[in-house]
Nucleic acid binder design. Structure first.
Lengths: 213, 213
DNA sequence: TAGATTGTTAATCGATTAACAATC
DNA sequence: TAGATTGTTAATCGATTAACAATC
């Protein structure tokens, strides 16, 4: 009963999502076995890194054959928590919140948008896809009614902290911060900052160096 | 003539964006000096990490006083390439592309949306903010006309690779991939993958462990 | 001067890569 | 059996943290 999958570092988790995408594709094509070398080559990582990563999970390969694709995909899904379904509430029904709510690729990975809330009376009651925008002041009951554990902060930077505070007060367990600012939270709540600005800066930095600007 | 700022690791760049936000705030409030201890405390990092990070840039503090906030902010902006302005083209005028195009926080950081393109005839010609959606097949001239160096891929996963190929063919220097899939690019082009799914998985993993699911 | 805070060198920690015995 | 590929241990590399002399 492998308790090994606890506390896997983010870098390993990120690679595992890529392993899963690749292995799932192979399994769908009817390919039964994949080696660490194949995986490494397809995803531009080191073979040793692949095998080291697999030490984190409760799954063994077979010498001279590799890993059985279907079983591998199944274990990866479990490890990544994809066998679980997560309901999220999106705070902020602006462009970002709406885009996320309508983004099908998330629910395909087990992240469902259970509700979307806003504080603007003009937006409350509007339709987003098949949902109606609810009042942020009803967050506590929204979270309870929809069995929501995760919140997404999709409000302007200036309102991000108060949106987070509202989520925390309503009993949220974890938050994804899409606002471009830092948010302070108590230890009991998990938060992950979206890194779109950092990503863009990293990108512009790389380009700058390449172009010798 | 500090050539020190070349090849700064992404982890350091990410912290620098936070230093800048904090220091800029202090400067705006008229506070002239900030110590490494203040910075470390405000951003939940180690004091040594702060000083180590500053070795990457061409800026010195003064013993017993710290760092002069205005000058510090200026050097950080230059190091992060924020004195440069970058024009971007968004490929995909769906919800994600539209949200990004209308997101003011990006242009405030020097990332301007110069153009937005799509391949769907129904979308071409539509208005997004003050822009008109252009034809993806005109990418080469769009990039030249608007002096665009960076592209953002905001199309569904299945179309991401062909969007990237079109950008590369049109002469783009760097790409941010918002699609939830892996994209292969030649070495001369830089690419950064948005990690929103990885972020959500990291978050759900943390919550899962906390709740003992 | 005394003391606080920097810049920098050294120590630690963790993640990546290499090596190789075990095994199919 | 011979050889390929795993699982795991050891080596390397890089990033974080600690320590401390230099300096204001």
């Amino acid at each position: 009963m492998g308790e090994r999958e606890s506390n896997i570092p983010p870098s390993v988790l990120e690679r595992m999502t890529k392993y899963l995408a690749f292995v799932q594709e192979l399994a769908d094509e009817g390919i039964e076995w994949v080696s660490s070398a194949d995986l490494a080559k397809a995803l531009s990582v080191n073979r040793s890194t692949v095998r080291q990563d697999l030490l984190h999970i409760d799954f063994s390969g077979i010498s001279r054959r590799g890993y059985e694709t279907k079983g591998f995909a199944k274990v990866l899904r479990r490890t990544l928590g994809m066998d679980l379904e997560w309901n999220m509430v999106i705070v902020g029904a602006g462009n970002v919140g709406t885009a996320l709510a309508l983004h099908g690729d998330l629910s395909r990975r087990g992240f469902y948008v259970g509700a979307i809330v806003d504080k603007d009376p003009e937006r409350i009651g509007c339709e987003v896809g098949s949902m109606r925008v609810l009042d942020v002041s009803d967050l506590a009951s929204v979270i309870e009614d929809h069995d929501i554990k995760l919140g997404v902060i999709a409000v302007p930077a200036a309102e991000a902290q108060s949106a987070a505070d509202a989520l925390i007060k309503a009993g949220i367990k974890g938050m994804l911060n899409l606002a471009m600012t830092h948010i302070a939270v108590p230890d009991k709540v998990s938060i992950v900052d979206s890194r779109i600005v950092a990503d863009l800066l990293q990108l512009s930095h790389a380009v700058k160096n390449k172009l010798n600007i």
